[in-house]
């Protein structure tokens, strides 16, 4: 009985990722960030555009996240909710918000300390990014019990470390990391969406209850 209850609870928690739309949108954001870092690596270091792009990174990053969330919800409203139903998740508690903010702060402080102590560690930025992104996927995977997220965590770490070892440099390394991760997420999301659409055909127009 206990396993049965846990099964339904876990399945409902996984529902947000049943269609792969979140990965598809995340893949788009990663490709966009890849293009951003490609632009940074191509522009002369002291040019005005380069400085503006660097200064606007936080804005671009947060803007992409906010837009991404809206896009996922809009796609789901058209594609997923009419097929398999609507679910709204509970907003995070204050405690979990503080924990997330604390972890992000510690992570940022560690990266800044590492780079300040050893400027050579700039070359390891792709590996550090791969580790952070991989860690996030690992947390999702263990919370939700989705095996493909474990795979994404491993891929992120492998891309990050691999690119750092190639010695491409920090900015170009990051550009290629984000581009590769974006393509991986698009592939993972695309396959998940295809499988979902096969299992859940488009609904007939009818009221939702008797």
């Amino acid at each position: 009985m206990k396993d049965n209850i846990n099964y339904h609870v876990q399945k409902t928690r996984q529902y947000w990722h049943i269609d792969g739309l979140a990965e598809l949108v995340a893949g788009g954001i990663f490709l966009f960030l890849g293009a951003y870092f490609f632009a940074l690596s191509a522009l002369p270091p002291n040019s005005l555009l380069n400085t503006l792009l660097q200064a606007g990174f936080a804005l671009i990053f947060i803007g992409s996240l906010l837009l991404g969330k809206r896009l996922v919800t809009a796609f789901k409203a058209r594609l997923t909710f009419p097929r398999t139903g609507f679910v709204a998740y509970r907003p995070p508690t204050n405690r979990s918000r503080w924990i997330s903010a604390g972890l992000a702060f510690i992570m940022a402080a560690l990266v800044v300390a590492l780079i300040a102590r050893s400027p050579a560690s700039f070359a390891w930025l792709p590996a550090i990014t791969g580790l952070i992104v991989g860690g996030a996927w690992l947390i999702f995977a263990s919370r939700l019990g989705l095996p493909r997220f474990f795979l994404l965590a491993i891929v992120s770490l492998a891309f990050g470390i691999g690119l750092s070892l190639t010695g491409l440099g920090d900015i170009l390394g990051l550009a290629i990391y984000y581009a590769l991760m974006g393509l991986t997420l698009l592939l993972s999301g695309g396959l998940t969406l295809r499988s979902y659409l096969k299992q859940a055909p488009a609904p007939r127009e009818e009221p939702d209850e008797s």
Binding site: N4, V9, T12, F81, G85, F86, V87, A88, E209
Partner: peptide
């Protein structure tokens, strides 16, 4: 009813279609 409550305990809300399918 236990299934319905277990599902709803994991979320803020869910619609009739989702509950019916699950």
């Amino acid at each position: 009813r236990l299934m319905i409550i277990a599902i709803l305990s994991a979320v803020e809300s869910a619609d009739f279609l989702y509950l019916q399918r699950e």
